[in-house]
């Protein structure tokens, strides 16, 4: 029997495997294609097209009416801005806070670093869902300083704010771990040389280690952005008003007040396109970051 390495498979099997790949491609792509295509069609046509190939092609009565309908009914623009703001700030703060901690833990020598590192890594095994409810109770009691006019006022409770959507997700054990791993691969001789030239530790962090850590920054950015953009359980509980509502909670409320499927598909497409565009533009980084999560975890 022939050796079955990938290159020496018989032609018949190669072809049937390729057929399987194409079939799976359709299974994964069609629901998404259907969503985009339907977002341009009136409801009657969505249902009429279901029985044929037309369901997956933008043909017939194509318009942006569904999109207009979404903006007429709810402040979708506001919710999009909320989600963009919350995810961006979470990513930026996350990169800074976690890389700083990882830098101190991996490159400097001090007492207690082992203990802190172990403590941080230990938090990895506890999923967020287990302590989400006690956390709701807890953030409802936390104080915050707020500007009211020209006076700083102490307020209690973080429900219906932006900080409640950002701060709990800034420090992340996994991000620290990824940075730690990456930093440890950068030669320490560079630090020594910089110290000789009079660089401070913060200077080494900012001008040597961080500029060399592009891939780690990209990985952490992606792994922070995706859950922030897609977050649902947490804002569902801590954000009531439309003013602070992010898109994922927004679309669920939207769905509940209206079952015009075309509009739901339009809303769904709007909040999927930004992530999908980012994914297609930075595919290699996306897939690489997930892969590195697996290999290192």
């Amino acid at each position: 029997m022939a050796v079955m390495t990938p290159t020496t498979l018989p032609l018949g099997r190669t072809l049937s495997l390729q057929a399987v790949r194409v079939l799976l491609l359709l299974v994964f792509a069609f629901p998404i294609v259907f969503m985009f295509v339907s977002s341009f069609k009136p409801d009657a046509q969505i249902f009429a097209d279901l029985t044929s190939w037309r369901a997956f092609v933008p043909v017939g009565d194509i318009s942006l009416d569904n999109y207009r309908g979404v903006f007429d009914r709810v402040p979708a623009g506001r919710m999009l801005m909320n989600s963009i703001g919350v995810s961006t700030i979470t990513v930026v703060l996350g990169i800074f806070v976690n890389s700083l901690a990882a830098f101190a833990l991996s490159r400097m020598r001090w007492r207690g670093q082992r203990v802190i590192l172990t403590g941080i890594i230990a938090t990895l095994i506890v999923p967020f869902e287990t302590f989400a409810l006690p956390l709701v109770w807890w953030i409802n009691k936390l104080p915050w300083l707020e500007m009211q006019g020209f006076r700083l006022v102490l307020t209690e409770g973080w429900l219906d704010t932006y900080q409640v959507q950002v701060l709990p997700f800034v420090a992340n054990a996994f991000s620290i771990f990824l940075f730690y791993q990456y930093f440890s691969s950068i030669p320490r001789e560079l630090d020594e040389a910089a110290r000789v030239d009079g660089a401070s530790w913060f200077g080494i962090y900012r001008r040597i280690v961080m500029p060399l850590s592009g891939p780690a920054v990209a990985t952490v950015a992606i792994l922070t952005f995706l859950p922030a953009w897609n977050s649902y359980l947490w804002p569902l509980m801590v954000v009531q008003s439309e003013e602070y509502r992010p898109v994922m909670v927004g679309i669920q409320y939207f769905f509940q007040l209206n079952v015009a499927w075309g509009q739901v598909m339009a809303y769904a497409s709007m909040i999927t396109v930004p992530v999908l565009a980012l994914f297609l533009a930075f595919q290699r980084a996306f897939i690489g970051s997930i892969a590195s999560a697996g290999v290192k975890g």
Binding site: F28, A29, N230, Y232, L276, F279
Partner: peptide
């Protein structure tokens, strides 16, 4: 692609 699509969507 489905992985980067939100579970809500």
């Amino acid at each position: 692609i489905p992985v980067v699509t939100s579970m809500v969507v």
